[in-house]
Write a protein that binds this DNA or RNA. Structure first.
Lengths: 348, 348
DNA sequence: ACCGAGCACTAAAGCGCTTGAGCTAGACCA
DNA sequence: TGGTCTAGCTCAAGCGCTTTAGTGCTCGGT
């Protein structure tokens, strides 16, 4: 019936109104569950709309005051740095699951650095492109929260601890400090006294949280030969740092890597130096993925559900869009999966 | 209610018109480089606009006939399958580089399967959300091209060979057949006669191209013990298939994996069976990434520039949006990087 | 029988932008 | 001198939707 050849025209509310024999306003009321039309009319309009395959034009909606039905997600990372990584795709996948329920789109942007990210936020805001944003990789001394607040863009900081947070922003985070404490506890129990934490980028908030927690935990347990070394997360630096620390005089007996990529590279580097894992040195990867089961020995790793993380963040943003006040929600503590790369210290 | 602080109002063309002392139309002409205003007025309007930090409202633009200033990208892949993968992020990064020049946004969606992907296209079309789409993972017997054409959505098929293509669509592709021929040639030269190709999903067009090419090349060279086995790309299947083929009677001396993840898993599986790489069996990974240098021995791999691939695809879409007729562009042949996992067949 | 209330629905304005149709003043031509 | 162009603007309509302010009706109360 409403079938047309190639250049199919999108049906509008006017078409529905005509076919249903009512005014456009009535159609609007009917379709948006607003009072003002009888149930029978509402049903008829609904039927016609469905039959025509009508969907609201987001542009028109937006122009008349509704939102853009879109949220934004920026990944600030130089193109050549985008390496092997399952976290973001999984995160995004979880985000989408939730957004899809409300027919919200996700505007995704990869940029080089934080400055560019800020520019994107400004543009999105000025162009009315998004109703809110999800921000990742919060840093110490981060310009983004202030900007987002200035623009009045509802935002959820993924991975931001509440303490570090701007008051107007929501946060979804994991308790890195607690997880680090658990890992150290585990290693300590296995007899390890000399531990090196091969951390990620020093500027990231969660890197700082982990480093602080490591220091605190070491102090609490009276461990003096425990320290963190920051890196850029790359396999190259992971290997290099591993090489360096294992070559030193009192080599550590346990290594905690801030991601799986460095852990894998580190194991290879250790092997080259003649260190057996876990006999000579135990290895823990922060972030579990297929990678950890692709090398021998299988890596013990801190595992969390990235998809669920994304879902949680999206839900928080949704409730912000619905007018809720900024909140902070914590996702479950990452779980330490003990595989083959951790063991008692030699001679213990 | 939402934070109603002082939500800086976005300036509109009306504001510019008032400040510049001209009509809105004049502003429009000036800002869009249309004739109808003098150069001095144009400059003045431009200055005011910049000063006010004005950016066009995409919604309004779209309503008055311009496009949505957005292109879509759907990834059909079950959430739990999103594994270690650098390809898509790199591809997207390349796409963005090009889109950003024109201030186009990228609407990104992860869905479970092709049916859901089709639904997304329909929705985007009906909601006027995108001006065009980039489609990945073309299959044999794929419903998407026909749908996109029916909807009149300009589209670029990433990885689609022209022969298999719907006439109305553009394609950007790599010559898988040529690459496969090159790999087989290389292995043949090293003395290999028994080769197994551990392929990806059988439904994908490029899987078929590779398998066809392998058969053809084997025939041409008179190799009878050469075959393909399809998988789901996972490390698990990669390992399982490797185990199976190496356990057979006349074990192959060379394995070609359709991705890096399976190659890595395969090497581990081979090691468990006591096969040394490359002494007992050579391994080639189709798709290079950090992964290939994270295992020992380093994997020989087919390398291509995914970021450039994305750029090329985006550029083709852009020219479609500018009215160009559908075209097919081929990206450079992947290059075989010989590392440590390939070598002459034992005894040759 | 009259009034006001309530319901179902319509008319019209407005969101920010583009665009074709005027309109005006000066330049040019005869 | 009048007529025709044209450059440079302005006007107003219209894109598809929401929303406010009506407009008729019916109905209950007195």
């Amino acid at each position: 019936m409403a079938d047309k050849r190639s250049p199919a025209r999108r049906p509008t509310m006017k078409d529905i109104a005509r076919r249903a024999g009512v005014s456009e306003s009535a159609v609007s009321f009917a379709l948006n569950n607003r009072p003002g039309v009888s149930e029978v009319t509402r049903a008829r309009v609904r039927r016609v709309a469905e039959q025509l395959g009508w969907r609201p034009s987001t542009a028109a909606r937006q122009l008349s005051g509704e939102g853009a039905a879109t949220v934004g997600f920026v990944l600030a990372r130089p193109a050549h740095t985008l390496g092997v990584d399952s976290f973001f795709l999984q995160l995004v996948s979880g985000i989408q699951e939730v957004l899809a329920e409300r027919h919200l789109g996700l505007l995704f942007q990869v940029v080089e650095d934080i400055a560019a990210e800020c520019a994107v936020y400004r543009t999105w805001w000025a162009e009315h492109r998004v109703d809110g944003v999800l921000m990742v990789d919060p840093r110490t001394d981060d310009p983004r929260p202030a900007l987002l607040e200035e623009l009045g863009l509802p935002a959820v900081v993924i991975g931001g601890a509440p303490a570090e947070l701007h008051p107007g922003l929501s946060a979804v985070w994991a308790d890195d400090a607690g997880a680090m404490a658990a890992v150290v506890g585990e290693l300590h129990a296995l007899g390890h006294r000399r531990i090196v934490h091969i951390a990620g980028l020093p500027g990231l908030a969660h890197t700082q949280r982990r480093m602080r927690s490591l220091r605190a935990e070491a102090e609490r347990r009276g461990l003096t030969e425990v320290r963190s070394v920051t890196t850029d997360y790359s396999d190259a630096e992971g290997a290099a740092v591993t090489h360096r620390v294992l070559s030193g005089s009192a080599a550590p007996t346990a290594l905690i890597y801030d991601n799986d990529v460095m852990a894998v590279a580190g194991v290879a580097a250790a092997a080259e130096l003649g260190f057996a894992v876990p006999e000579d040195v135990s290895v823990v990867a922060w972030e579990d993925s297929a990678l950890c089961r692709m090398v021998k020995p299988w890596l013990s790793a801190l595992s969390r559900d990235s998809v669920a993380f994304g879902r949680t963040a999206a839900r928080e943003l949704l409730s912000r869009l619905d007018g809720a006040t900024p909140g902070t929600v914590q996702v479950p503590l990452p779980e330490l999966i003990a595989r083959q790369s951790t063991g008692p210290v030699r001679g213990a």
